[in-house]
């Protein structure tokens, strides 16, 4: 008897909540109806995007909880891959360390360089600007031209750098730039900085074109005195969405470092000195065919990127204040 009363009480208490929910649902449905056109606009993209990007990602995350060698159907093993990854895989920890070291150095430098160069280039008259832009983005335009670094840093006496240092007497014997764990990461960082002036740089240039010139003139009257103040108080805040875009591009490219390590330092590199999360992933994914384990590595990398993105977006919100 008592419990019945309690139950009805609960039901009565639920009524306004339900009503509210129903109201909210009604509101949403109404909004959906009003914005029919918006859904039409998004529909082609969303269909293809879901099919070719979201579904594969979800499937990969699912595989990360399985043992999957491509030939046999995946076997569910829970968190085992992740446990193995962090507690039983020393090389993965080296890879994580290298990736973070690499990302912490190249990420910020190349991001700031992309912006500063775009900003400097924007100061020039159109013709000169076009030429400088072309030159600056030449390395990223020409695809895999980082092969040139192999010639420069070649370990024998004939490598450009060794040859130069020997001739000027700075060193006595040639240095194994690409085989010595001491230098490998440094070489890769230099090569990456050189090649990275691509997508964010061009996006920044396009973004700078979009800023209304009149704002600068108004600001000059309001007391902005030099180009640095102008940069901080006007240009940067006006560019914020593009800066966010650049940051995401920078995060994805720096944490995904891998191809260039393989090209310069070989695979696997001496003492795993140039081993990154992505090369570790390649090792398990395309050589050992342990797709479950590779998926777990990818998921960890994904989590790292999402985390650093959060951090950087928060930092960018403070720009120009």
């Amino acid at each position: 008897m008592k419990s019945e009363i309690v139950q009805t009480d609960k039901r009565i208490a639920l009524i306004p909540k339900l009503a509210k929910e129903r109201e909210h649902l009604k509101y949403v449905i109404k909004q959906v109806k009003i914005n029919k056109v918006s859904y039409l606009f998004v529909a082609p993209f969303m269909t293809l995007f879901t099919l070719f990007y979201i579904v594969p990602v979800i499937m990969s995350i699912f595989y990360s909880f399985t043992y999957y060698n491509i030939l046999e159907p995946p076997k569910f093993i829970g968190w085992l891959n992740y446990i193995k990854l962090f507690l039983d895989d020393d090389i993965f920890l080296i890879a994580i360390k290298n990736t973070f070291l690499f990302a912490l150095i190249t990420g910020p430098i190349s991001y700031i360089a992309c912006f500063m160069f775009a900003w400097m280039v924007n100061e020039y008259p159109p013709n000169i600007r076009a030429i400088i832009t072309l030159l600056l983005s030449a390395p990223s335009l020409s695809g895999n031209m980082y092969m040139i670094w192999q010639v420069i840093f070649s370990g024998d006496n004939y490598g450009y750098l060794n040859g130069f240092l020997l001739r000027t007497g700075i060193i006595r014997e040639s240095i194994q730039w690409l085989q010595d764990p001491k230098y490998m990461m440094a070489v890769i960082i230099i090569a990456t900085l050189w090649i990275n002036l691509g997508i964010s740089f061009l996006a920044f240039i396009a973004g700078l074109q979009g800023i209304d010139r009149n704002i600068y003139e108004a600001a000059a009257i309001d007391g902005v005195k030099n180009r640095w103040q102008e940069l901080w108080y006007i240009t940067l805040p006006a560019m914020r969405p593009i800066l966010m875009f650049g940051a995401v591009m920078q995060i994805t490219s720096t944490f995904n470092v891998g191809d260039i390590c393989v090209a310069l330092a070989g695979f696997p590199s001496v003492d795993y000195a140039a081993h990154t999360v992505v090369t570790h992933l390649m090792d398990y994914g395309s050589i050992r065919f342990e797709m479950g384990y590779a998926s777990a590595i990818a998921t960890v990398l994904f989590a790292i990127m999402v985390g650093s993105n959060k951090l950087i977006q928060n930092l960018l919100r403070k720009v120009g204040e």
Binding site: F49, L51, F52, Y53, I54, V55, P56, V57, M59, S60, Y63, I70, V248, I251, T252, F255, N256, V278, L281, M282, G285, S286, M291, A294, S295, I297, A298, L301, F302, M305, V306, N309
Partner: peptide, 21 residues
């Protein structure tokens, strides 16, 4: 939000699901 997240997933492991699709 999903679009930004999708940018961050390594394409090396999505190759197989992609092939299946």
């Amino acid at each position: 939000r999903i679009i930004v997240l999708a940018l961050m997933f390594s394409t090396a492991v999505t190759a197989i699901p992609n092939y299946l699709i």
